[in-house]
Nucleic acid binder design. Structure first.
Lengths: 244, 244
DNA sequence: CAGTGGTCTAGACCACGGA
DNA sequence: CCGTGGTCTAGACCACTGA
């Protein structure tokens, strides 16, 4: 299937919501009428609606309908902690100019400490990148990426200075399927003070990321140190069934 | 239905994963065999698996199987940015003692600025709480909660000093269904310096939260200022269909 | 090739909300 | 009461993986 039917209706409804055709707190058409209008089964409609809900666009209410809970100005001006998006993609979405300086690229071996923190197999060969990312010309993020050599044998300087993920997807055919992120705050170190524009503050926001490729291999571990000014992550949550 | 079938199999598999019966990078039984074993249809099995994937427990791979990607020690020692969980619940889960001091409780009216930031209706009457939360005896979080009076007419001091959410759910029958969180870093202000244990740093982690109840009313806006030491949020992401 | 997950259907019954 | 969303089924066909 080129594009699944539920993706089409997901996109159609999302676009409608983002354009304001379905404003904040209004209701979407009912599942039955959507199924009829799009000529698909109700199950497929429900699948699209589930994705919309998981992204914070709508909230379904039994007996009432499907309400729009998306607010344009709040939910489109931040990085996504939920969602897999490269900095280059986020920059395009937010209208921010992203530049990247490759500071270091080297081969290494995953030691016990790194293996424990990252889930990468101990003793494996890995490629480490250190990159400084500039947002609208201001040094904002210090990225340290570690890739399994087995999955990512090398990364050309040019790719490292534009988008690593575009290179992985388009050249190597490696896609990130799942990713786990951890956000904390740490005292700034000498390197941060040297490179980042901290606006006089003494902390950085740290985002660690653990990624799995489409073959289920944990192949990437990244630590990003963010200047406070540009640390801004958004996430949506729904009550889960069977929550402990 | 008391508990849905998919909730039961979700819980069963999650427990199995958390107990190590299905270790990191192992495979679950196939969808067909799960359907047979639990005596339910494959669609229902898939629904349970989808929730497991959304919580970062598993990753399905076409033609191969369903792989476990959950690592106990990494994913159970942090607050959840994905997921709706009160601080009291998180404390129990993490084995942290949570104490709360109510600093202020007052009625207010939602002005234009607050309405713009929070999504609460301008002019509405609201109840504002300011609370200091202590984790294992150390002042760690300054919470500012704003509730629509229409939904939450009042909160007894006792409830404010234990868990507001338990009070909302059990006494008022108000459940949070969807919630949007925004995490940033800000310079510490005088109040933070006065109350919080900042470990000598000059920043706080700020989490803003916008919540909708089961009737679809945006009824709560919360700003939490976290001491850096205890700011630690985890989030999992999957590649979405139709990602921009 | 057999077995896996991915998509989709048509229909059923239930619980809930509002008129 | 009717219309809404919530759950569940049985079965179909597809695309992909690995032996």
């Amino acid at each position: 299937m080129a594009t699944a039917k539920y993706e089409e209706i997901y996109s159609a409804l999302r676009t409608g919501i983002e354009r304001g055709e379905y404003p904040f707190l209004s209701f979407l058409p009912s599942e039955n009428s959507l199924a009829h209008d799009f000529g698909i089964s109700r199950n497929t409609v429900r699948k699209a609606l589930q994705y919309l809900a998981s992204q914070g666009y709508v909230q379904a209410m039994q007996g009432r309908g499907i309400q729009v809970i998306f607010r344009q100005h709040h939910q489109t001006s931040h990085f996504l902690l939920t969602g897999i998006e490269s900095l280059a993609e986020a920059g395009r979405r937010l209208g921010i100019e992203v530049r990247t300086r490759l500071l270091e690229s080297s081969m290494m071996t995953v030691d016990a400490d790194l293996a424990g923190r990252s889930g990468l197999p101990e003793g494996a060969s890995a490629l480490a990148l250190t990159r400084l990312r500039l947002l609208d010309g201001r040094p904002a993020i210090m990225d340290r990426n570690i890739f399994l050599t087995e999955v990512v044998p090398q990364i050309p300087t040019k790719a490292a200075e534009s988008s690593v993920y575009a290179y992985l997807e388009n050249r190597l055919g490696v896609g990130i399927v799942s990713s786990c992120r951890l956000a904390t705050i740490e005292p700034a170190d000498e390197e941060d003070l040297q490179y980042l524009d901290l606006s006089g503050l003494d902390c950085v926001g740290v985002v660690e990321s653990f990624s799995f490729d489409s073959a289920g291999v944990p192949f990437e571990y990244t630590r990003s140190r963010h200047a406070p000014r540009t640390f801004s992550f958004i996430s949506t949550a729904q009550r889960l069934p069977a929550q402990r």
